[in-house]
């Protein structure tokens, strides 16, 4: 990280002032050329269909098409923000996402750090491979597994609780347990998969740094705190900022397969709400409106967190741009 800073510092120092734009761009000509194909694909395939967003403000009609459907202004947004069930879903989404961010987000980092301390390469590789297996199992299957594990009568978890003299808990129908279950099962399913990016970052650390620390007599924990953690901090910050863009999606598949009306109070999220509503009137416009709302909130959060990250970082150069 410090290396990268130096590089930028030097560049800034070299940059002569008051050049025209063309003059400033010229040295980068080859780079612009390299940028071209990727950018072209993004413009065509991501921005090309973007006009579809207008149906959030229209009453979309398949027969008339996107351009010719009648405008209705903010009607769908109004409907969305004035329905009690929708605002409850909004609140739940924010709470569940926040919980996941606080508890699930650090777990893959922790796993990567711990794996980094494992000396036995064979063990380490097997552990890595196994830890990312649950990622490939869809939520519908994980849900039926959880149902079995958490059942008050036949579940293994409650059997253990009873062994220790507790009384069985009906986890999935209990309002106070539902969110913790979401967070824990999310960690369980994604910890290994999410740690891959941190493992990649760890492999970029210069081993001589560790050697020097060992010579200085640093313990393992000290080495983690002083070398390993700072080295993966930049990527962790990026992952955090990126995850802000998805904060309004608290995990449709997970919630949809685990919830029941008994826990809608604490578990119904925007996506499940929109899905249920779609069963009634299948409105593309309404779901696009909610999607657009989610995107706008996501964008605001990404920008905000990016600014904060920049302010907090020592050289004000963390963040996406």
């Amino acid at each position: 990280m410090s290396a990268a800073t130096t590089k930028r510092g030097m560049k800034t120092a070299q940059k002569p002032r008051k050049k025209t734009l063309a003059q400033r761009m010229k040295p980068y000509a080859a780079l612009y050329l390299m940028l071209l194909p990727g950018l072209a694909l993004i413009l065509i395939f991501c921005y090309g269909p973007m006009y579809g967003l207008q149906i959030a403000f229209k009453d979309y009609n398949i027969g008339m098409g996107i351009w010719n459907s009648p405008w209705v202004g903010m009607e769908h947004f109004q409907k969305f923000l004035t329905t009690d069930a929708a605002t409850r879903a909004l609140t739940n989404t924010i709470i569940i996402s926040a919980l996941k961010l606080v508890f699930s987000f650090p777990m893959p980092i922790l796993l990567a750090l711990v794996l980094n301390e494992i000396g036995n390469q064979a063990f380490k590789r097997v552990a890595q491979t196994i830890s990312y297996l649950p990622h490939f199992i869809s939520w519908i299957i994980v849900a039926s597994l959880l149902n079995n594990l958490l059942s008050p009568s036949t579940g293994a978890v409650n059997a253990i609780i009873q062994q220790f003299g507790g009384s069985p808990i009906y986890f999935l129908a209990d309002k106070s347990w539902f969110r913790p279950i979401l967070v824990i099962s999310n960690i369980w399913k994604e910890i290994g998969w999410s740690s891959v990016v941190y493992l990649a970052a760890l492999s970029g650390i210069d081993p001589s740094l560790y050697e020097a620390a060992i010579v200085d007599g640093a313990t393992r924990v000290q080495r983690i705190v002083r070398i390993t953690l700072p080295s993966i901090m930049p990527i962790a910050v990026i992952m955090l900022i990126l995850s802000m863009g998805n904060i309004m999606s608290a995990g449709f598949d997970q919630v949809f397969n685990l919830y029941s009306p008994q826990v809608y109070d604490v578990g119904d999220i925007l996506d499940t709400y929109v899905y249920r509503r779609g069963l009634v009137d299948m409105s593309y416009s309404f779901s696009t409106a909610v999607g657009l709302f989610k995107s706008v909130v996501g964008l605001i959060l990404v920008v905000t967190v990016n600014v904060i990250a920049k302010r907090l970082s020592p050289d004000h150069d963390a963040g996406l741009w």
Partner: peptide, 9 residues
């Protein structure tokens, strides 16, 4: 990453 036009377009 945050905005997309949707399935039909």
């Amino acid at each position: 990453m945050i905005f997309s036009g949707g399935m039909i377009p």
